[in-house]
Design a protein around this nucleic acid. Sequence first.
DNA 1: CATACTCTTGCAACGCGTTGCAATAAGCCG
DNA 2: CGGCTTATTGCAACGCGTTGCAAGAGTATG
Lengths: 129, 129
Amino acid sequence: MRWTPQRRLLLEVLDGTNGHVTGAELVDRLRAVDPATTPSTVYRTLRVLEEIGVVQHAHGRDGREEFHVRPAEAHGHLHCSSCGQSWEISPADAAATVQAFRDRLGFDIDLSHLSVGGTCATCREARTR
Amino acid sequence: MRWTPQRRLLLEVLDGTNGHVTGAELVDRLRAVDPATTPSTVYRTLRVLEEIGVVQHAHGRDGREEFHVRPAEAHGHLHCSSCGQSWEISPADAAATVQAFRDRLGFDIDLSHLSVGGTCATCREARTR
DNA sequence: CATACTCTTGCAACGCGTTGCAATAAGCCG
DNA sequence: CGGCTTATTGCAACGCGTTGCAAGAGTATG
């Protein structure tokens, strides 16, 4: 792995980011610092960073990429299709599900890539009221 | 809702489809019948069909759209990132998960849009062996 | 320090899906 | 049947992400 200016910059920007970012957002922030930034380089670098565990990505409800920086633990995400908010699924909450799929179907869920759509408690109450 | 030739054609092609199709595949099949087919019309029509329950869509592991035709029941999908195969999650298997999220987080999972990545039993065994 | 090896970059083009807008054509009503 | 309203279409352009390829720049080596 080579230590290039572009990668240095991407890591800097990622450090200034907490939580989730889409690919496009990252490109924008990078361009704000270095207008010469190229999307292909950014996305390629993100893939490399994912391989070595610096970021993880999943897909939002619309299929767009969302990157999660330096995750303490693998965890999935919840997206409310009504209010648009999103939350992390705590490892504790996910564990039972992961276990259930492993036991019943032998399928090993990739938690880091898990993105679940639906309706959050608040929106559901607001709707049924 | 208007009954146009384009919609008629799309429904015909959907009828000749079992299981899952990506948007691009549909456009290709439609073009094979009518070369004048326009992507925007196809995707717009698919959205309409989804609203009235004829199809449902989720996103594959790469974020691309996958349409499911005339689903008997809402159900999620499992995608193996190793062999690329995909399976339906039976309502029975999904029920416990849906219930768990509702109970613990108040979150109401949209099963029809659920797409879970991971490693299938076969691939996992092949790998650990 | 110069050299070679090969990993990275930028470019240009592509693929999938979406959107705004003007033109078209369904379906309704007299 | 003919005209009217408005849903639908096609076009063109855009947004996000990917890929092939040749040029460029890290890094290790002598």
